[in-house]
Nucleic acid binder design. Structure first.
Lengths: 346, 346
DNA sequence: CTGAAAGCGCTTACAG
DNA sequence: CTGAAAGCGCTTACAG
């Protein structure tokens, strides 16, 4: 790359002022007379001068950059939902003139990854960082918050942790589960199975909790045989369902899946076992994945406003960066029922 | 954010050496005796010292950061294919210890956007930049290359432009179009329509060229009525097809669509007009979009190895950054036919 | 092998 | 209102 950009000394010389004044103009200080300001601006524009960011940072300015850290075991680029979340953050930030520095935590050992992430904060590359896919109360994140860095997290239980540099953005799992169970019950289902999610991620246990509450609200028994352990992946949903089908003594009339990816896997396992959805069993998802309307049968599911969720988080982070630490902030994105073709009344 | 990180002066003091020596250790200079190196490393590790990146950049180091610039009119987060390309770059870069600074060019006027992008280079935030979705020979990009910045571009005709700081990654449109036409011809189609793409993007005209060549190779006439103008979007494909259906005097037996998104739109328009695919007309796409295997009928298409395409580009860029300007580099990702259910023999 | 010093390009109290 | 100067935290010739 070239190395011959013009600097503030040169601008100062050309405008016949000091570097101090150039800096005051650049940073929009009030105590510069219009005439001086215009004189300097003309030179700046003529030479298309742009201050060196590193020098500005060294002198104490912000980076106008947000870090985005993805925790993922598999190939992230294959995961449409995560791709969308990433792009959504970038889009929100770009709209506000912020850059996003993205890093995928997948290459190294946990310890080394943690070091790399911490470095990004320590090197002052970023004004704050957003984490997607992290475990609930992940030690690295708690450490960063403890050290005063500004951190945004998705899908975390924040009970009792209300530091001003912690921003949490969740979705309403309890209401979502309630909507789903209510809907199934309204279709006369009472025998309802639940495929659980990753127990380490907050929405895993919370959705389970929501399911239990909703079932209790309808005075419906929960059959232990119908609580299926799982993770959040399509492959996991397939394996869990296949194994479960081999052992279960009586089938439920409906399955509520912790998310849509798992439901896709479950659907495949059910199809392979010759069980028709929704004729023989109803299947309900959670997320409203982009594929859910496209598969056959189109998946009835709980829509999550991920768009709003990431927007809120990114916005709040930028606010905190620009206005200094605010109060602790927590957002809860809405969930709603989307009826398609995978459930039927019995 | 906190402001109390340890610096090299402090490390030097604690290790009983000068800052010069600390720097030599950090940068792995050979002329440091093992004993001194170890002594310094111990202090560095004990205090988890990480050099300030901005200071390093000011002193002439690289940023280990790649810029990623997206040109898009609509909401990028809704475009699954673009999301995948973005994440793919981030993933490749993360694997090599590089960060990716992403910016979406959508918010402002063209002029202002160009300024913001140029700033990113000028501020030395990045060691090089990758552009996705840019027009062929976009002036901003040519300007950046002219000024010596390292630029990677997707889908560009590089004829006669072989600067060492230009890296191009395309896919093989000519072969892809040839494969598609060959396939249709092998199914006895001779009346073949083509929906064209965005004329400003290189793959638009190149695919058209490939189509004409392939038709000529089979001595097939090209009916002007069956060349349909379009862009690269689903909505565009829908509108173009709908309009075309209203005016065309004789239907072809097959439609080759410039990409899969356009084919999805075309399929919708055909369905609405009561024309069955593939019974009444065959439909062939290009890209192998994630949705193509999921729609009904599953779309027969030309698979493009986007994964390889972005990987090559990102890799070559990192090579150029680390080893200095190489020769001009150009990559061409493979294309191959994927047979599904949207074409039939006649 | 190693330290003192210059230099990178800004910002911002400080003094006038 | 504005300039001279200190300071941010590194790296790297230079001299020894």
């Amino acid at each position: 790359m070239k190395n011959t950009e013009i600097n503030s000394t040169e601008i100062a010389r050309l405008a016949g002022v000091s570097r101090s004044t150039v800096s005051r103009v650049i940073n929009n200080y009030p105590n510069v007379p219009t005439k001086t300001r215009e004189k300097v601006m003309q030179v700046i524009e003529k030479y298309q001068y742009v201050p060196n960011l590193s020098a500005q940072i060294m002198a104490g300015k912000r980076t106008r950059t947000i870090g985005l850290f993805l925790k993922s075991t598999g190939l992230v680029s294959n995961d449409m939902l995560t791709n969308m979340l990433i792009t959504r953050v970038i889009e929100s930030a770009s709209l506000r003139g912020y850059y996003v520095l993205t890093h995928i935590m997948r290459t190294k050992t946990d310890e080394e990854e943690a070091r790399i992430v911490k470095e990004t904060f320590q090197q002052r590359r970023i004004d704050g960082g957003i984490f997607i896919g992290a475990a609930n109360h992940e030690p690295l994140i708690e450490e960063l918050i403890g050290e005063g860095y500004l951190v945004g997290i998705v899908d975390q239980n924040s009970l009792g942790r209300t530091e001003s540099n912690r921003i949490v953005s969740n979705f309403d799992n309890i209401t979502g589960m309630r909507l789903g169970v209510d809907y199934l019950v309204s279709m006369n289902h009472r025998k309802i199975a639940f495929i659980k999610g990753d127990p380490l991620r907050w929405s895993g246990p919370e959705k389970y909790e929501g399911f239990m509450q909703a079932m209790a609200a309808h005075y419906l028994p929960v059959n232990g045989e119908w609580i299926i352990p799982g993770d959040f992946s399509e492959e996991g949903g397939y394996r869990a369902t296949k194994e479960w089908l081999g052992t279960v003594s009586e089938l439920p009339t409906a399955i509520f899946s912790v998310n849509d990816s798992v439901a896709f896997g479950a659907l495949r396992a059910l199809n392979e076992a010759g069980i028709q959805v929704p004729e023989q069993i109803s299947l309900l998802g959670f997320d409203d994945h982009v594929l859910s309307s496209r598969i056959n049968p189109a998946l009835t599911t709980i829509h999550v406003d991920f768009y709003e969720m990431m927007e809120n988080l990114t916005d709040a982070m930028i606010q905190s960066i620009e206005k200094g630490p605010q109060q602790f902030q927590k957002f809860i994105a809405k969930t709603s029922l989307v009826v398609r073709d995978s459930c039927r009344a019995i």
